[in-house]
Design a protein around this nucleic acid. Structure first.
Length: 112
DNA sequence: AACGTGACTGCCC
DNA sequence: CGGGCAGCCACGT
């Protein structure tokens, strides 16, 4: 399969499988998830996958952008839900909308 | 079927 | 070192 082609029909499922593995109290980024799937240039698709997963039990609040910003917070039940949830897991914020990636970044293992 | 949009990122200035 | 821009690709109109 082509290294940078997220053309498998279960691409979303692969994304969800990784999100489900993000440890409590940790966060990861769209880009790292894409990279773990061998689709480095498809970080945007990870966003779509999470959009499709809205309302499920997946801990999608643990996915932030590469700067640690909560770019997806608008997609949660309330505007503050994502931040509150992260704080409740002991995640430290550098700014109101930015988590401390240095402390809490989790890099997902590559997926076969 | 073409077109704009977006839970993104990496370069280039 | 912050901001702009192009590349990316599924989706809704």
């Amino acid at each position: 399969m082509r290294p940078n082609a997220p053309d498998t029909p279960d691409f979303y499922k692969r994304v969800w499988a990784i999100v489900a593995r993000i440890p409590y109290g940790k966060v990861t980024t769209y880009g790292h998830i894409a990279r773990a799937l061998g689709a480095t240039r498809s970080a945007r698709l990870v966003g779509w996958a999470l959009h499709a997963a809205a309302g499920t039990e997946l801990p999608c609040h643990r996915v932030v952008n590469r700067e640690g910003r909560l770019t997806g917070k608008q997609h949660f039940p309330t505007p503050t839900w994502m931040e509150e949830r992260l704080r409740s897991e002991g995640i430290h914020f550098r700014e109101p909308d930015q988590v401390d990636l240095e402390k809490h970044l989790w890099i997902p293992p590559s997926s076969p």
